[in-house]
Design a protein around this nucleic acid. Structure first.
Lengths: 345, 345
DNA sequence: TTGTACGCGTTATCAC
DNA sequence: GTGATAACGCGTACAA
């Protein structure tokens, strides 16, 4: 690939001039029109493309935002990622997305690579798994990086000392459970998600506390995953048992959609036979008319990106946008059929 | 961030020695055990992290694979991306994923950024939109890059001269249509997708030709998008019309799932009232038991990544894996209820 | 076994 | 307005 030097030679000017024309501040450092034309022509014929590596080396910064997504196949993270990406592009930054497959070891690797590339900031999408092999080491490494000045943002509960922009998962689950109780449901079962996953645990805890509060008996099943597949499997298990519960609360929308898939493809009617609800508010949930708590995914991503790109926002941590209960078609219609804003923090 | 020089100074050795220790070329260039320990200790205390920029500049290669995804929210591309990423990581490469939002202008921008970073190869996930503003320019730029030696792989039909690993969309649609006809359906409607999108057009063309072949009348509706939302909207439109068709063929799984969402949430029974089929074979399609043509997404991604990471595969273009018809629960059970392998190319 | 010195492509600081 | 030239951090011939 052609270098600046070659362009300069072809245009019979110095590299400095070529640099000024092609990458630089012609405004602060005027170059005559003819020479500008000559340089541009040379660049075109040579197919010149500036080297990001050389520029980063010289300027000591990268204009790169690193994103470590727990599972890029989960629309929850895909939407977060998209929010980050849009805002980053607006500010002239490139986004590097790395998929960690919910594996702390992979998170560590990706984190290291991103740091080697001198990413200006690194965003973690997805919470940690307590006790998983590598979680503690990752936390140590992140803490060290933060201490060194790297900007790290967590968009989910994390056991390290980064900036965090996190919704209140427990409260979201409480509101959702209260809503289902208000519809007259008592036998409400919760499908659990991944054991140890902080966000899931918080949601389950919220469900439990709301059930206790109402004098109802909580029942949590199927700590098996956060995907449609695991939701479907959990629902299949439940339908095999003697009596169907009144309602199902799932730790996220994907699990809920998986549960719906099982019910629909097996002749059950929702919500007549059973109510189903999720947490997240992904686009998919809207398509299925799922009752859920919408978390402001795009806004979370935007806030994270802005925190990294905006040098002025140095100490200020962006406020967490509110989660909102969105009643849908998958729960029996009730009297409390209105959106309940949930401010917090 | 600490540099190699600082590490060397702290360990009282030369930068050359420090480099040898920290980059593991110790095998070809032995360093005494004590000095190794000293260097490593210094690196740890200083929190040394090698600069990818400096290394790339020196070594003239990046170990980066760039991926330009048409729509990261579409699981089709997410699965492709994941396939690329896994194989890339296996070979010690980092994957940079860029989302183009189906916009040729954004594709151009991302492509340029990836080239500036001297990505060793760039993979396009998603086909082009004929006639869209920017498509022609993008093609010109890609052709120039290819001509210059950049490895570009397209995983969907594209109007430029890159390597391409593409499934035969037309044949996939033909097989699917023939299958529905074999079930006794005659009034089969096709939901079209995005106008001008090559992959969608090819699939629609396959549907049309199979219908003509059987003496049936093709009807294509709703060229509005490739998302669940657009599938749902198209289905809503169809259910408003006088008579429901026998079956629906959708250009991709997302649209089909959107159609199913409308049917299920409005009391229709599938496949009793109407059959629905998609193309793609994403995980989501399996969860819903959708009849579809499975395209080997992971394999496509793997092949693309391997083509880029493996220098030996210089001229050889990987063979395209086969697409397979997968009858599901969303089409009336018939006599031809077996998977039909579809070899091609 | 260890050290010296050069260059990768770019930008910034000078001088002219 | 334009041109030399010195870094930026690293890897690697080559020398010792």
């Amino acid at each position: 690939m052609a270098t600046l030097r070659e362009v300069a030679e072809l245009a019979s000017v110095s590299v400095a001039t070529a640099s000024r024309v092609l990458n630089g501040s012609t405004h602060h450092h005027p170059v005559s029109t003819e020479i500008q034309a000559a340089v541009r022509a040379a660049a075109t014929t040579l197919g010149y493309m500036p080297s990001a590596a050389a520029r980063a080396l010289k300027q000591q910064r990268s204009r790169i935002i690193g994103v470590i997504a727990s599972d890029i196949l989960d629309p929850y993270f895909a939407e977060l990622t998209r929010g980050i990406e849009v805002e980053a592009a607006r500010a002239g930054y490139s986004t590097v997305i790395a998929n960690a497959n919910r594996d702390p070891q992979q998170e560590r690797t990706k984190f290291r690579v991103l740091r080697e590339h001198r990413a200006q900031g690194i965003v973690f999408c997805g919470s940690d798994i307590e006790g998983a092999s590598g979680t503690a080491q990752l936390a140590r490494e992140v803490n060290a990086a933060v201490h060194q000045g790297t900007r790290v943002v967590a968009l989910a509960p994390r056991g390290f000392s980064s900036t965090s922009i996190v919704v209140d998962n427990a409260t979201a689950a409480v509101r959702l459970t209260e809503y289902l109780l208000s519809l007259g449901h008592r036998d409400i079962v919760c499908i659990g998600g991944i054991p140890g996953l902080s966000a899931a645990e918080q949601r389950v805890a919220g469900y439990r506390s709301a059930m206790f509060q109402a004098g109802a008996v909580p029942r949590v099943v199927a700590f098996s995953g956060m995907t449609k597949d695991s939701g479907k499997a959990a629902m299949a298990e439940l339908t095999r048992s003697a009596r169907l519960p009144d309602a199902i609360i799932c730790t996220n929308d994907e699990v809920a959609i998986g549960a719906l898939a099982h019910l629909w493809t097996n002749g059950y009617r929702v919500p007549e036979d059973i109510s189903v609800a999720g947490i997240g508010g992904t686009r998919a949930s809207a398509v299925f008319g799922l009752t859920t708590v919408t978390l402001p995914l795009t806004e979370l991503g935007t806030a994270a990106a802005r925190f990294i790109t905006d040098p002025a926002a140095q100490p200020a941590v962006p406020a967490t946008p509110a989660a909102v209960l969105r009643p849908g078609l998958t729960t029996r219609a009730g009297s409390a059929e209105k959106a309940v804003p949930e401010p917090h923090r």
